[in-house]
């Protein structure tokens, strides 16, 4: 078995125009759930984006295991509502598991994305990333817009999926993070 971490950050300072987070060091091992935690504006999302490749790394190193497949759920998926895509087609894009979706959410599969509420769309986006055939899932505020029932569902599916892949999440919902038993990494500005 490969004991090397899936992703390892060493004294990473990241941002866009200038560093807004770091230096940050942590490792994400296989089957592990790590939650980035800190006050608003501390750069949690930026740190996740640096791992995802959409934010700039100013110093330090991010090591990814060779051949690592990563899914990345962003915070703001609503701008793509104009595209005529059904829920089923959305899940098919990532190879997400539509059959495992609870029966209460099955009707969402045949509806157009623009007909879904913010919470429903968020759930499908998270589901698409979480159940895709990947080694690591990056989830940025997965509980945004999601009601209590949806959050309970996310807890169940994350618990199930943790056996198959590592999960790195950003969340401001402490109860959610604790319910998952995630290892918490404090994030601070430079």
């Amino acid at each position: 078995m490969n004991d090397a971490p899936c992703i390892e950050l060493q004294r990473v300072e990241a941002g866009y125009e200038q560093p807004v987070v770091g230096p940050l060091s942590f490792a994400l091992g296989a089957g592990e759930i790590v939650a980035l935690w800190g006050p608003n504006g501390c750069g949690k999302t930026t740190a996740m984006n640096a791992i995802g490749g959409s934010a700039r790394v100013f110093s330090g190193t991010i090591r990814k295991r060779p051949g690592l497949r990563i899914s990345h759920q962003q915070q703001n998926p609503l701008s793509l509502r104009d595209i005529p895509l059904s829920g089923r087609e959305l899940l098919a894009l990532t190879g997400g598991d539509a059959a495992a979706l609870p029966s209460s959410l099955q009707p969402l599969l045949d509806r157009r994305l623009s007909e879904l509420s913010g919470g429903q769309l968020q759930l499908l986006q998270v589901w698409a990333c979480l159940t895709a055939p990947v080694d690591v899932a990056l989830l940025d505020e997965p509980t945004n817009n999601v009601d209590a029932e949806g959050i309970a569902l996310l807890e169940q599916v994350i618990d199930r999926e943790r056996r198959r892949r590592a999960i790195l999440l950003v969340s401001h919902d402490r109860r959610f993070v604790e319910a998952l038993g995630a290892r918490v990494v404090e994030v601070g500005a430079p």
Binding site: G52, G53, I70, H72, L93, C129, V134
Partner: peptide, 12 residues
Amino acid sequence: FERMFPDFFRAS
């Protein structure tokens, strides 16, 4: 896929 999940591509 790339349009709906641009970071999926980049991250991998």
